[in-house]
Amino acid sequence: MIASKIYDFRRVTRDDVAMLCQWQARPHVRAWWGSTDPYTDEEINDPRVSRFIVSSQDHPFAFMQDYTVHGWDDHHFASLPNGARGIDQYIAEPDMVGVGHGTAFIGARVQALFDSGAPVIATDPHPDNHRAIAVYTKLGFRPAGPPQETKWGLILPMLAAR
């Protein structure tokens, strides 16, 4: 069972930018991620966002980030309680999609965020990204309102509370 696998979360560094650009250019990632722009040093070092390369058995296969929802004045989750975190991620390797890795590594990171004291975790998939919504639902996320347009695009706000 995939859920019992161990996942490693390593902080993104400048050395990962080329790999991230390649990953974000893949059609199955670009369909939902939308950007192939490389991260700048300023973005990599932004204290509001924790960015990770996710690996399984020493094989990097996914990207995940979590962020303070209070880091931007106009963020659509800014009304959540102090300590709330938002999450985003993608699986870069096509053969790793649809076999349980997403549910497992997202669940592991969400649990770590709750263990660190986050009262609520937020995510905002595109309303047509049914695969992502199904994974989030399995992990206890629930829609927190109707789809809405944000400066990051059309989203379905979803929340999980500890």
Rank of each mutant, 00 (worst) to 15 (best):
G86N: 11
R26V: 02
A78C: 12
G34Q: 11
W152V: 01
P38S: 13
S79T: 14
G145C: 05
G140I: 02
A118V: 05
E42P: 01
A122P: 01
W32F: 15
V69M: 11
W23C: 04
Y90T: 02
F114G: 01
P146T: 13
E93C: 03
A3K: 13
I87E: 08
I53M: 13
R85F: 10
C21I: 06
T150V: 04
S116R: 05
L20P: 01
I91M: 02
V99I: 15
P147Q: 09
A112D: 08
V135R: 03
T137P: 00
F141G: 06
A18H: 09
T36W: 00
W32C: 07
M64P: 00
F141D: 07
K151L: 06
L80K: 12
I2Y: 08
L113W: 07
W152I: 01
M1A: 13
G140C: 02
Y136K: 02
V17I: 14
K5D: 14
P146N: 13
V29K: 05
S55W: 14
D37Q: 15
I6R: 14
A161W: 11
T137C: 02
N82H: 13
A122W: 07
A25C: 06
S56M: 14
H28W: 12
W23V: 04
D73Y: 11
V49R: 13
V69Y: 13
V120E: 11
Y67G: 06
Q24W: 10
Q111T: 12
D15K: 08
T150A: 06
W23Q: 06
G153M: 04
S79L: 11
N129R: 04
I106R: 05
L139M: 06
I44Y: 10
S50Q: 15
A62Q: 10
P157G: 09
R85N: 11
S50I: 12
L159W: 10
I133R: 11
L156V: 04
